[in-house]
Design a protein around this nucleic acid. Sequence first.
DNA 1: GTAAGTGCAAATGTTTTGCCAGGTC
DNA 2: GACCTGGCAAAACATTTGCACTTAC
Lengths: 137, 137
Amino acid sequence: MRNTQQRRAILQQLRQTKSHPTAHELYELVRRQIPNISLGTVYRNLQRLATIGEIRVLRSGGQTRFDGETVPHDHVRCVRCGRVADAPAPQPSLTAPAEEHVEGFKIVGYRLEWLGICPTCAAQDRAATPTEELSPA
Amino acid sequence: MRNTQQRRAILQQLRQTKSHPTAHELYELVRRQIPNISLGTVYRNLQRLATIGEIRVLRSGGQTRFDGETVPHDHVRCVRCGRVADAPAPQPSLTAPAEEHVEGFKIVGYRLEWLGICPTCAAQDRAATPTEELSPA
DNA sequence: GTAAGTGCAAATGTTTTGCCAGGTC
DNA sequence: GACCTGGCAAAACATTTGCACTTAC
């Protein structure tokens, strides 16, 4: 695999952000360094980097996000805005269900995603719901 | 919300299949009962049924699948073919990480997906070369 | 030099939406 | 009859791909 400036920039941006960006967000970031990079190139490289295990793909909540951190860990997703943060892996690690309980599937791993409300959305909730609207008598 | 024959058929089909179909698969199933139902209607109703909690939406592996079973349980996904089966919920249930470990998110739940190889794909593996898939946890 | 990689644009696949007719209450 | 809903088709997105040109090695 060639070491192109595009791939280097993509990986570098992904590694130095903790925001788990979408492909398009990453595209915007990399575009500051390489203004004429194309979105297709970003997608192509993300796919390759994922295949060789350099990055991780997070699909959930209808969005695809990318994570430059390959050390095992889980994630929390805000159910309001879709923002994703890291979460520590559970202690002790999970025990896989026996094959006879999962239609004979051989378990090779798992993905655990916590669901939550991020601080920003929690603040908005407090501002939006405090008073019920009273019906005019 | 009105009780239309379309919505009844969609929910009924989803409830009586254990295959966690995609929207299009469900569309094909329902079409046997209501030949001129439209894909848009299937999507609209799945969305509504999910909103009121009658069904569950599973997004992973780049596919969106639907589950008519609302009793809490987890899933196993075949990393080769994307097929999804049910898995029992872990015992004891997971303990949420403390807020300070997840950037202040308030945890409201989790989604656990086991990754595995289904019996069909395992059989094919024995005859062909293994493939790759994205990292587990 | 040459094959992998890029930019661009068109194609693909999935999900959503606007509009009006038709069914439901 | 009022108003949800559905059918249909177009639109909106996200992602992939074909092709000719570049570039890393």
